[in-house]
């Protein structure tokens, strides 16, 4: 029963999506069902958020309680979770349709601090802590690319040397100064790089991978729909 029911649900859901794809959503019942099913996914996803909060609190509070190595970071995570969540959800005042205040937890002047609007605590934390930290992490990628490129482009053998030469040419072509430098040798070099390396060799390889991946995804979807593949449920 624990296996059969999920397989049947997977089959029905998959069939709705597959068959719905071939029908006009404005004129067929199936097209509308497809849209409806996609909305259910969003609703179910919203409910599972609670699972995530429970997990993050349990894992981090355990480390803080046991004072394991780096527990201070876990404490920071816990404080951050509640600092972002509580002010954004607190209802300061509730106003009736007639304009009278039904209840008030905090003074009305504090109203702008709560919720997620401009000037709220949530907004401040998001703009001045969260967003810059995300940007910092993303910016660090440049340094990681440099160290990975150093390892990848070492000329250890003929293939690696070919990769190094190609990479240098492509990188030079990507910057104005590099393009000007390449034009010193021949006006055709930048065009050659664009036509043959980027749009020829590179695209051909990428398409090969994409076709293989698409077939793999279609095959796996079919195996799941038909109940042949059950490994995603921990079975088989």
């Amino acid at each position: 029963m624990r296996t059969t029911v999920p397989v049947v649900i997977a089959f029905i859901s998959g069939m709705i999506m597959v068959v719905g794809f071939f029908f006009n959503p404005e004129r067929s019942f199936l097209g509308r069902v497809e849209e409806e099913v996609l909305q259910w996914v969003t609703i179910v996803g919203g409910f599972t958020l609670l699972l995530g909060v429970v997990s993050i609190v349990r894992v981090n509070s355990k480390v803080v309680k046991q004072k394991k190595a780096g527990w201070i970071f876990n404490l920071a995570t816990l404080i951050s979770v509640f600092a972002m969540a509580i002010p954004s959800m607190l209802p300061v005042t509730k106003t009736s349709n007639l304009g009278s205040v039904i209840y008030s937890i905090f003074p009305e002047s504090w109203g702008s601090l709560f919720g997620t609007g401009t000037g709220s605590i949530y907004d401040w934390l998001f703009n001045y802590l969260d967003a810059p930290m995300m940007a910092t992490m993303f910016a660090m990628l440049a340094f990681y690319i440099a160290s990975a490129a150093y390892r990848a482009f070492r000329a250890r053998n003929a293939e690696a040397t070919l990769l190094l030469v190609t990479a240098v040419l492509v990188m030079l072509w990507r910057i104005p100064m590099g393009e000007a430098f390449l034009r010193l040798f021949s006006d055709n070099i930048p065009g050659y790089i664009n036509s043959y390396i980027m749009n020829g060799v590179n695209v051909a390889v990428q398409r090969g991978i994409i076709i293989g991946a698409a077939l793999g995804a279609a095959s796996m979807s079919l195996r799941i729909m038909l109940g042949i593949e059950r490994t995603y449920m921990g079975k088989g």
């Binding site: 991978i209 991946a213 793999g216 095959s219 195996r223 042949i228 593949e229 088989g236």
Partner: peptide
């Protein structure tokens, strides 16, 4: 690419799952 989707079948060594890979 496709090796990712083939991985669970490959690791399971089950003929039925490997049949799907051959079909692909």
């Amino acid at each position: 690419g496709e090796e990712l989707y083939a991985a669970s079948s490959y690791l399971s060594h089950e003929p039925i799952l490997l049949g799907g890979l051959k079909g692909q």
